[in-house]
């Protein structure tokens, strides 16, 4: 542990050490019930930009192997939440990942991220392999690619059924293909938490279905915590284990059935969409993973 190392080197006085330990213990009690397996915790999480509070008092445990869909009106702060979790925006409160084996270990989660849209020049001479090598390889991409990185990219692309795209340029891919490639990249290496920001906007219905099926399967294969922002309530209802309605803070949180029947969805998106969501629930073959109380 880092603190102990500091203590040994004499950089940290024993008193300071005691204070830090007690703070950590306090945090542990503040964070409330344990999360069973591994989970990502946001405690009193908030974002204030230009003195305007965008998000406040967000307390959230995202459990491993759980697909949580984040709903909310435009401007509710969904993307801001993601950007703060990624460290792009300053935040208050805390964010950490708790391992299954050792409850005491608080670390910053390794986050996989799939942006809403990769704002890329369609003419850019960047292939899918270049993208992977840029993120993972040490050898500069202008000196070509090693066989190892090629194999690695191929394996991960195969997970999302996109291995044939390896040598395609990013600009040639369809929206759905690009999102699958980005998903494969986000899974390399396998993260603690996967953030998907409206990953299927601009993708055709078949592509949406494929994408959701894939994500749904991945959470089981890799025991992933997944947070997904979506506006597509019926599709979300078919795949989500849990739904959260966000507007500056968490207003509704629970199983899809609870949230869809609750007031949040009806008031914001209208009774028709809520009903459509509930109807999709009836069509589900699987039942949502029960999350811990």
């Amino acid at each position: 542990m880092g603190i102990k190392k500091c203590l040994k080197s004499g950089a940290l006085s024993p008193i300071l050490y005691a204070i830090m330990i007690s703070t950590l213990q306090q945090q542990a009690t503040v964070s409330g019930p344990s999360c069973g397996g591994c989970c990502t915790r946001l405690i009193n999480f908030g974002v204030t930009l230009n003195r305007i509070s965008i998000l406040e008092a967000i307390n959230l445990h995202v459990h491993c192997g759980e697909l949580t869909v984040l709903l909310g009106p435009n401007g509710a702060g969904k993307t801001t939440l993601f950007r703060a979790m990624l460290g792009e925006l300053p935040y208050t409160g805390s964010l950490h990942f708790v391992h299954a084996e050792s409850e005491e270990r608080f670390i910053h989660p390794r986050i996989g991220y799939v942006p809403q849209k990769l704002d890329i020049d369609t003419l850019a001479p960047v292939t899918v392999l270049d993208l992977f090598a840029g993120a993972l390889a040490h050898r500069p991409v202008w000196l070509g690619h090693s066989a190892a990185i090629r194999a690695k990219a191929f394996t991960m692309l195969a997970v999302v059924n996109a291995q044939t795209l390896l040598d395609q340029r990013l600009g040639q891919l369809s929206c759905g293909q690009l999102q699958r490639v980005l998903l494969a990249l986000a899974l390399t290496p396998v993260p603690d938490l996967l953030l998907l920001d409206e990953p299927v906007s601009g993708v055709d219905p078949a592509g949406i279905d494929l994408f959701y099926r894939m994500v749904s399967e991945l959470r089981r294969t890799f025991d992933l915590s997944i947070l997904l922002v979506s506006h597509d309530i019926p599709t979300a209802a078919r795949f989500a284990d849990r739904m959260i309605f966000l507007n500056r803070t968490i207003l509704c949180d629970g199983s899809p059935r609870e949230v869809l029947a609750g007031p949040c969805i009806r008031q914001t998106f209208g009774i028709d969409l809520a009903a459509a969501g509930i109807q999709q629930l009836e069509n589900r073959s699987d039942q949502p993973v029960q999350h811990h109380p």
Partner: peptide, 10 residues
Amino acid sequence: LNRSLAKARG
């Protein structure tokens, strides 16, 4: 390529 993606990858 993408700043958010780069940030997410550390």
